[in-house]
Design a protein around this nucleic acid. Structure first.
Lengths: 166, 166
DNA sequence: GCAAAGCAGTTGCCAATGCAACCAATTCTG
DNA sequence: CAGAATTGGTTGCATTGGCAACTGCTTTGC
């Protein structure tokens, strides 16, 4: 063993991953921060969970999707979606209609009450987003979304066939 | 009630939040995708959980931090950190030394075995990051990190005094 | 200098989540 | 067209994670 490798064997801490610049870490921290803050809004004001809000938001935008669509699009486990749906149906916010073309799946829509929740919640969500994004210029915001979109596509590609687009 | 408002009361679906462009949603989806893919690596190969990996990575970079530091920096709940630390200590990857200056806290360091894990894992983590980021040019990567950093700062600001920097 | 308030870390408890097994409907294949 | 494989959705089970109460130490303010 050379002198150098002996010296190395004392293993001076030499960081290989600088967390502050490590993509998965940074992304997760940011997503958690933003998500927690937003969750507080729809939890306190509407008693919605994160999966519940996501389902309402998806159906607010696209009527007649299936549970599977929602799960794939928002990268939630199908059991999570299933349970959140039961809760929303219980509260009368979501309706399920069997799809005559394929009796395995159910087409989901917001009820009147569900849409009312959506329409009350949406502006608050947008205001929150606005507040967060206000530190970026409009051009930077566009750039950011473009980059996020491309990373998303790449991440789904790397994840292989497991995660699919809606 | 005017004819118009009657017509409106049929509530045609008019999306207010376009999920594909909604920051919290996009961020969470991307973070989940990236996180899951990375988690597979250190789970399968080293039996580490996400909190466990984060602790190892933090201590790999900064020796002698406390549990509190790690929790704040990575936005994990202190109980999560506490339990993950017990597991890592059990496996002989992390050591706790009481801080003589403040007997409440414990200074954490990697053991030899812990550092070995770190040094085996770090290159794989970096390679994974590299693969994901490869769809962006170096300039875009720098831009992206800059934007994420500023959003992070803003999110912590908005979250109020609750979430603090290390 | 002592009581009160604050803080680091742990733990019991409960809700949420993931996994895997399962059911029912559909599609594929020979 | 029958049986096998696949798919949408549900559910039981075990694990994880958050919350809040608690311990023991430290700081603050009379």
């Amino acid at each position: 063993m050379s002198a150098r490798s002996v010296a190395q064997s004392r293993r001076p801490p030499r960081p290989q991953v600088v967390l502050e610049e490590f993509l998965p870490y940074r992304l997760n921290v940011l997503a958690t921060l933003v998500s927690n803050a937003l969750a507080r809004i729809y939890e306190e004001r509407f008693g919605l969970t994160i999966p519940g809000w996501r389902i309402i938001a998806t159906l607010g935008q696209y009527e007649g999707r299936t549970a599977r669509d929602i799960a794939a699009h928002s990268v939630m486990h199908k059991s999570t979606v299933s349970r959140a749906l039961s809760a929303l149906e219980e509260r009368g916010l979501v309706e399920r209609k069997p799809n005559p073309e394929d009796m395995r799946e159910e087409l989901l829509t917001l009820t009147e009450a569900g849409r009312a929740v959506y329409e009350a919640l949406a502006p608050e969500a947008l205001a929150f987003e606005e507040r967060t994004l206000s530190v970026l210029t409009p051009a930077e915001q566009r750039t950011f979304f473009d980059l996020v979109l491309r990373l998303d596509a790449q991440a789904r590609r790397l994840a292989g066939a497991k995660v699919r687009e809606v």
